[in-house]
Computed example of a mutant assay.
Amino acid sequence: MKICFPVEEDGGLDSPIYGHFGSAPGFVTFDTDTQRTGFINNRNAVHEHGACNPAAALAGAGVDAVIVGGIGHGAMLRLMDGGVSVYQAKDGAVKMDAENFMQNRLTKLGGNENLCGGGTHSCGH
């Protein structure tokens, strides 16, 4: 399974998870079967709320799940509609939350949560 984390820069497993999924400069991917990491540049990152298009950056990457600190409702629904599961980060670091994911210790989001601008997380947008 390939999981994806929004990050500011590619630090592999040592990367901290970026606060807002859509405007993250890039995404670290982690394959739970091979234990290999990769990096996807988010050329579509913009810093205006509602103008982000992370789905375009992830298209064709074979991502099965994303682990986020914050995410807008629309982005969450687009990912879920595309068959990508969305999970709430627990520790805020790729290495720790990859382990949390593999040990089933993360909360899977259902689409009704508000993780951007209030609710359980404020991403600043």
Rank of each mutant, 00 (worst) to 15 (best):
V84F: 10
G111N: 07
D14I: 02
N42R: 03
D14G: 07
F39Y: 15
C123E: 06
L13Q: 00
P6G: 15
V7K: 05
R36T: 14
P6T: 02
M80N: 09
I17W: 05
G72F: 03
G110T: 14
D10R: 00
R43A: 04
Q103I: 05
A89C: 09
A45S: 12
F30P: 00
D14K: 04
L109S: 14
D81M: 06
H20M: 02
G111K: 05
P16L: 15
M76I: 06
F5T: 15
S23P: 02
L58A: 11
L13N: 04
H49D: 02
D91Y: 12
V94A: 05
Q103G: 06
A45N: 04
G119D: 15
H73G: 04
E8M: 13
V7A: 05
G119I: 01
V46A: 05
M102L: 08
A45Q: 02
K90P: 08
A75M: 12
A61N: 07
T34S: 15
R105M: 15
D64E: 13
F101S: 05
D91N: 13
L77T: 11
N100G: 01
A59E: 12
V84K: 08
G62Q: 08
Q88P: 03
N44I: 03
G19C: 10
N44P: 01
C4S: 15
R43Q: 04
G22V: 14
V94F: 08
G11D: 01
G12S: 06
